[in-house]
Design a protein around this nucleic acid. Structure first.
Lengths: 107, 107
DNA sequence: TAATTAATTCTACATTTGTAGAATGTACTA
DNA sequence: TAGTACATTCTACAAATGTAGAATTAATTA
């Protein structure tokens, strides 16, 4: 199962904070903030998908990531490379150095 | 508007072929192939999203991409870098060389 | 020309995603 | 302790996505 774009956004905030209560995550959003129940739904779905976990404190939860940002990113990258470069890192690298703003020197 | 995963898959086949009739695209799929109407729906949606165009030949259409694979890929990459590295190519590069299978030498 | 092949359009429907109101419960605070 | 702040669960619903049957049409072929 994959995170959707909206869920990914929320995940970003959680990665930044490392752990957080719902309130903190809501505050991370720029105005106009989504409704609290919207976030609650997202958190629930993300927990179902096993991307986040939580510790109970009274009736509320302190959420934390279950996947590392780097792992998540890597998975995306390899997916992208697989899809677009037939899984050839070399093909990717040559495209990358040609097309990107980065020069080989920078790398 | 974005392509969905399924649409992207179909787009891959079209990029490979450069232009194709529906039949050719269906044949590109491994068994079990999706129903022809499924492909037809996808092609229609992709045309609506302006990712593909077509030339009429009798009652049928020869489809072709309207966006280059490299452009599409680049957009994805920058999106990914923006999301995960706060738009810093340098941060990305350092992560990349550290985490990937590719060495700097390879690049 | 009758049968076959390919494509298109229309319609349909289950699932997933984005968003949030209402009701309810707990915990801190004046 | 009564009010306020925060969280949770339940329910709901529109839009997007994945998938495809039925009907119709055009082109090809036996």
């Amino acid at each position: 199962m994959q995170l959707t774009k909206t869920e990914e956004q929320l995940m970003q905030y959680l990665w930044e904070k490392e752990k957080a209560f719902m309130k903190d995550l809501i505050e991370a959003y720029p105005e106009p903030r989504p409704a609290a129940t919207t976030i609650a739904t997202l958190l629930k779905r993300m927990a179902d998908k096993k991307f986040i976990g939580y510790k109970l404190y009274g009736n509320s939860r302190e959420y934390h990531p279950l996947v590392k940002k780097s792992d998540y990113f890597s998975k995306h990258m390899s997916g992208l490379i697989k899809t677009f470069f037939n899984d050839s890192a070399t093909q990717f690298a040559s495209f990358f150095t040609k097309e990107s703003d980065m020069s080989e020197a920078e790398l």
